[in-house]
Design a binder for these strands. Structure first.
Lengths: 257, 257
DNA sequence: GGGGAGAGATGCCGC
DNA sequence: GCGGCATTTCTCCCC
């Protein structure tokens, strides 16, 4: 049932009782639920938050995940994890959406002022996304193309879970010195350097070696990180994460010769 | 216009031409757009991804952010950042949603098989969320209650951006030795310990001091992190991030006595 | 379930 | 813009 809003007559407002009845039915059927409303949101759980009156978009998934978006930005302003229980309750004259995840001790209370639209469906989707250009792709690529590390590099392992820890790539340099490589698909920062140091120290201790080399492989590195890296005697190598399309294009170019 | 799906007659399918016309209009008006569809998604940008045929929920915001959700999980399976350009185009008999962000060199192509529902609105929301129980709240709380760090602790600064780096809290212990405190609102891990070490080393160097103490304040710490922490002569203090509601309750309890 | 680390991380703040 | 860092990070993988 569509009504004109009292103060803003160009805004259509849905009867909240109709919405509540529809919501309960869709929830019972474990449908995906989408609606837009004007609301006030309070959250208490790992942290505590409050968000004053405004219009937001709500998504409740078949697995009972709740995601709430403001009109701007990539990240949800509030959310509840899968397995949350959702209820619409009346308190006096006001409707609330109350979401509780007792297992995680997370609670949310949404005062519903009015609803702009709602819809639902029963989505069917058994697919998983495939991704290329990750850090793992980088280490695989360097394992198969050791000259990307340096001339004469002999890779020993690209397993992340060696007995020395989660090391992206390690092997022997031309002189037979162990070289630990930490890959970053983005700008390498101070944290990347301390992470590398932890790995190098771990390998030195495990193998009782005096000298183990460390290297960061990334598209770029911040000035501070590079300073810390060289201060500790480690090195940097510029490498980009590989993408399938780019590789396909490269191969095509090779084929042209 | 509602049609019955040929293979699954209980599924309502919308005429995709109607959807395309509606979509262009809503986009022109910078509305928030929500729809559900069966689709195939390809992405190329910072990385590269592919997702085979399945049902997903789409949200396009007034700022042209695109967010795509599968029926399960908290995180979107694909997304495009604010300022992306969206177009519905026909290629032969097939409709595609093409999203391009030239500034970021990010591109997405969605083959639209059929649409289950769509809706839009013009949300108005000038509110910002307020959050309590963050890491900053923790350091503020300890600054105001130094005994939470240890007996006799004298806080000097809780500014995160000192010239020695972004240090949560530092001050003098009972003996007048400098103490750097790194707060974590969650389980402290190995990265937290190396981060603390960086700060301690930085302060030692800057102030030319032989001894500076380090402490991690967190609800808990992993076994490995605690070992590394104590190996380096630092200490751990169990502290929980403060929440307003909890504080209010605590004050109420105090009032009872 | 915890630990450890990546992510197309995002968002915030300071320089 | 970059840098440094928190996040109700989330997710994955391994033990």
């Amino acid at each position: 049932m569509l009504l004109k809003h009292q103060l803003f007559p160009d805004i259509m407002v849905l009867r909240i009782n109709d919405f509540a009845a529809w919501f309960r039915k869709a929830l019972n059927r474990s449908q995906a639920i989408v609606f837009s409303c004007n609301c006030t949101i309070s959250y208490n759980g790992r942290a505590e938050s409050h968000l004053s009156k405004g219009d937001r978009i709500f998504l409740i998934k078949p697995d009972k995940t709740l995601i709430i978006h403001q009109p701007e930005g990539s990240s949800p302003v509030n959310y509840m994890k899968p397995g949350t229980e959702h209820k619409i309750v009346m308190n006096g004259k006001q409707h609330y959406l109350v979401s509780s995840n007792n297992a995680l001790k997370e609670y949310m209370e949404i005062l519903l002022n009015n609803v702009h639209f709602y819809n639902s469906c029963s989505p069917s989707d058994g697919q998983k996304i495939t991704l290329q250009g990750t850090e793992k792709d980088m280490s695989d690529h360097m394992y198969q193309n050791p000259e990307l590390v340096e001339q004469g590099f002999k890779p020993l392992s690209r397993e992340e879970h060696t007995k020395y820890g989660f090391i992206d790539l390690f092997g022997l340099d031309r002189q037979g010195t162990l070289l630990v490589v930490e890959c970053k698909r983005y700008n390498a920062d101070l944290a990347a350097v301390t992470q590398l140091r932890r790995y190098v120290e771990r390998v030195k201790k495990s193998k009782n070696l005096k000298r183990v080399r460390g290297m960061i492989a990334a598209p770029k590195i911040s000035a501070n990180a590079l300073r810390m890296l060289t201060d500790w005697g480690y090195s940097f190598r510029r490498v980009h994460p590989p993408k399938r399309l780019k590789r396909a294009l490269d191969q095509k170019k090779l084929g042209e010769f």
